[in-house]
């Protein structure tokens, strides 16, 4: 729960700068333009530092960043 809320909070405040009212777990982030290529850079920097993990090349696929839920699942797996 803490992971998913951290990610939601970061996307809402840092990537969207509060311009999106509410982002649900299953909202499509890329498809809806919530995250773009710079947004991915920001998000990766955040999750790698916050959760002390490294996202490897084969994990850097759009599917893993499509929703807050999929990002959270990826982070959860990396934390172990």
């Amino acid at each position: 729960m803490e992971i998913i809320e951290s990610i939601r909070g970061f996307i809402s405040t840092e990537i969207c700068s509060g311009s999106v009212q509410k982002i649900d777990d299953a909202d499509l982030l890329i498809e809806n333009g919530i995250i773009d290529s710079v947004g991915i850079m920001l998000l990766l920097g955040f999750i790698e530092e916050k959760f002390a993990i490294t996202i490897d090349g084969d994990e850097l696929i759009p599917e893993n960043f499509s929703t807050i839920a999929t990002i959270s699942t990826l982070v959860g797996k990396k934390i172990g």
Partner: peptide, 8 residues
């Protein structure tokens, strides 16, 4: 996928 967002 030209119809998709450029990110994917």
């Amino acid at each position: 996928d030209p119809a998709a967002r450029r990110l994917d």
